[in-house]
Each structure stands twice: as C-alpha cells, then as structure tokens.
Amino acid sequence: MLDIPYEVEILLRSTVGAIAVALFALIFGLILVGIDRKVHARMQSRIGPPIRQPFRDVKKLLYKQTIIPENAVQSIYNNAPILAFAAAMAVMVYLPLGPFSPMLSEGGDLILVLYLLIIPSLAMVVGGFASGSPYATVGAQREMVLMISYELPLASVIIAIAWKAASGGLDFAAFTFSGIMSYPIWDHVGAVGAVGAILLLGTILITLPGEMSKIPFDAPEAETEICGGLLAEYSGRNLAMFMLADAVKTVALGTLVIALFFPWGLTPTLESVLDVDINKYIGWGIDFLFYMLKLILLVVVAVSFPRTAFSRIKVDQITDVYWKRVGAMALVGVFLLMLDLQVL
C-alpha cells in the first residue's frame, strides 16, 4: 500500500470520486432514458429509437443555437438550467451507489436529499416563469401544483422508514443513508409491517413518474395541450442542460428508492450459495452491476409501464390522486408499521 497522507487522501477521494460519480450519473442516466424509450416503444409495437439516442439528442442540442425569447428575464432564464443540473448532481454525492457508500455523509442527509430533489423542479418553474410565454406560465403553475401534490406522500414514506429504523435502535444514524442501508426494512418487520412496507413501496413507485413529469403525471409538459409547457421556449444548450438534469435526477430517484427498499448486494448471497470467498474488488464490481440492474428494472416498472398503460390526467386530478388515494395509501402504510411495532 502506498503511504498517502490523510489530507491528500481526502482531497483525492472528493475530487476523483466526485468526477467519477458525475460521469456515471450522466452516462447511466442517459442510458436509462434510452432504455425507457426503447421498452416503451416495444410495448407499443414500435421499433423505437436505439438506446444511444439520448446521447445523440444531447450532442445535437449542444451544437444548436440557443434562442432567448424577447420578453424573457435573461439572467434567470439562462441560469435555471444550470441550477437544475447542479442540484441534480449534488444529490448524487449524498447517495450510496450500490456497494459504495455516499461520498459525503452527515447526520440527516436523508432530509437534505429530499430537499435537493425539489430544486431541479423549482429551477424549471423559475425558468418557465422567466421565459415569458403563456404556455410556460401555465406549465410552471402546473409544476408547482404537481410538486405540492407528490411531496406529501414522498416525505411520509421517507420519514416513516427513517422512523422505523430509529425506533429499531439506530437513533441519529437513521437519517443517514449509511444507517438506512445497514437496516433493510424487510428484515425488521413482521407480517403486518411487511404489508405496510409494501404499501409504502407502492406509494414511492407512484410518486416516481410525478417527480420525473412522465405520463400519467406529465401535465406540466403536456405536449398536446401546452406545447411542452415549461420547456416550450427552451432550446439548444439550455434544453440540453435540462435533459441532462432530468437524466441525473432519474438515477438519483432510482438510487433513493433502492437505498430505502432494496439495499442488498449480491455478493453475500453468492458467497454463501457458491461457498467461495469473493475478492473485495470483484465483489464491488458484482454489486455495482447488480445495482445498475435494479435501477433499470425500477425505471421500467415505475416509469415505462405506467407511461404505456395510462393517459395523461389533468392537474386537478393529479392532486386528487396524490393527496387522497396515494396519501391515504402512505398513511395506512405508516399506521401498519406502527402497529407492527406494538405487536412485536
């Protein structure tokens, strides 16, 4: 082993690590978008674009002229995409990527991630209002309503899980990802609690299309109604930034769900089944591949399937669905978890 001073190691870890995480999130995010489009197309009996299509799209957008509308507020209009992208990237640093623990970890980073995830949407709202187009204004209003709608069920799921972990003896570590990862919810609940946990999983899966503004919850961008809404005026580099932010956010959200509900790696199982010792680095590789597989499955189930099976619903119906039905589902889940604790 090389003898590296502690300070240098920290520096190396944060710079090299951050770059690696950023590259991974960008590339894998775009691949996820490509897979989603392909699966969606195959389910509609179309051939669909090749999986590398999102890369081509981004490349082309970066080449293209960036048009700034006449009555846009330039400074806000141009900075909103950068803000969205930066916030999405910042989330990635706090998330555990498969076998790798998060690069930055403080007490309560679960809550921080919850807030950071709102920022890309907020940036889109601000950018939409700043672009001075009636379509974007309508889109921005809808996006705000959508955010208010899905935030309640999402927060109740995250808090319920953290609370469960805290009451299971983790205390303050419960709101950190490393804490949650070491305390998979399924291992610590009885039958009643398991039903509650399934309801919570369902809740978070339904909020995913909302977070990503995908059908059936794509009212803010509704192409046939308001011509792309928030993004109606965006073009060129700015639009590419939003696309990348969207891709990174997809990875971030998927990772969040995986950390909360499916934190296991494959290596321990493999070791016990095959009865061999797996090298630490190979184990990392296997677990990382397994994590990517989980992400792909998650995106297909939570994004591609609903996108194929449903039509777009109106913004008042979205609020209705999220607050009444999904909200009730989350509350019942939380209640069952609490009941489970009493039974135990």
Binding site: M43, Q44, S45, I215, D218, A222, E223, T224, S311, R312
Partner: peptide
C-alpha cells in the same frame, strides 16, 4: 383522440 389525452399506446395500436 388518444394522442390528445396523452395515451400514445392507444394511438399506435389503433393505427395499426
């Protein structure tokens, strides 16, 4: 009509 309400799957199926 399906496309207008954002139901593209139905659009592709009906046109098929």
């Amino acid at each position: 009509a399906a496309h207008e309400i954002g139901f593209d799957t139905l659009l592709h199926w009906t046109w098929k």
